[in-house]
């Protein structure tokens, strides 16, 4: 390769590398001196955290809250790989522990909500499911989360304590996938969280079962180490833990830790 060609190659490589950072830079400036707070939160928090975010923006002039919602373990992996998160809200303690173990917590994690499992069935309950024991029925198509993800781990714990062996037709990757199989009527029942049933509205019916109280999922929140604005991150967490945030969460079906 000639020296000139090498120069061109280097130039293009640099241009390609510079592209994303350049666009991010201009993004921050468009608001005219606004500050952005980036919150990484578990997918089950989507609607509640968006509402809390709007409230936070209303209370803080020139602050914009951006969310990245996803599976908690995916989010931790992204933060470990350098994702620009200021706050992390996990759907379980195990994934928050991963963040702490990686030394990426910018303050002690605090529990802000709890969630319990519930059975979701299509409207009208075609398979006549009324208890967790009914899920073991031979003709009931049950969909659960895979044991590797938090909701699936909770499901197998409940099954163990209830002494029920469930033979699911599918082990899904997330609560949303389980819910999708139920709302479409493909599955007769799915094990999801109380908050998912509530959020799904009329498209599913919820069936509570007493064993769920024994396996309570706790949601912790923490600032992320290296955030540009630790004070703002702390204030957001205070809003979540405070009356206003707790009210929004409880309206959506979350319990108080």
């Amino acid at each position: 390769m000639t020296r000139r060609a090498r120069g061109v190659l280097l130039g293009i490589s640099l241009a390609v590398l510079a592209l994303p950072s350049a666009s991010c830079g201009s993004d921050d400036e468009t608001g005219g001196g606004t500050t952005t707070l980036t919150v990484y939160a578990a997918a089950s928090l989507t609607s509640t955290f968006e509402e809390i975010g709007r409230r936070f923006e209303a209370e803080h002039d020139g602050v914009q809250v951006k969310f990245s919602f996803g599976g908690s373990s995916d989010l931790v992996a992204q933060i470990q790989n350098g994702a620009p998160a200021d706050v992390f809200a996990s759907a379980d303690t195990a994934n928050m522990d991963k963040l702490v173990a990686a030394g990426l917590d910018g303050g002690d994690p605090q529990d802000f909500a709890t969630n319990v499992l519930e059975i979701a069935v299509p409207p009208g309950n075609p398979a006549d499911v009324h208890s967790f024991q009914d899920l073991a029925g031979p003709d009931v198509k049950v969909v659960v989360c895979a044991p590797e993800v938090p909701c699936g781990a909770a499901t197998s714990q409940v099954a163990q304590r209830a002494g029920v062996t469930v033979h699911p037709v599918s082990e899904e990757q997330s609560v949303t996938d389980v819910l999708g199989k139920v709302t479409s009527g493909e599955a007769d029942a799915g094990v999801v969280y109380v908050t998912d049933v509530l959020a799904a509205g009329d498209s599913v019916d919820g069936i509570e079962f007493p064993e769920s109280a024994e396996v309570v999922n706790t949601y912790p929140i923490a600032p992320v180490e290296g955030t540009d604005d630790p004070d703002l991150a702390r204030e957001f967490i205070e809003l979540v833990l405070g009356d206003a945030g707790q009210h929004i969460l409880q309206d959506a079906g979350f319990g108080q830790p």
Partner: peptide, 24 residues
């Protein structure tokens, strides 16, 4: 994953298995 679900030996193909393993 949208249509067939995910169950070992029945519907969990190699890409689904990879997606699942990535968690743990």
């Amino acid at each position: 994953i949208t249509f067939a679900g995910s169950l070992q030996g029945v519907t969990r193909t190699l890409p689904l298995e990879i997606y699942q393993l990535r968690e743990t």
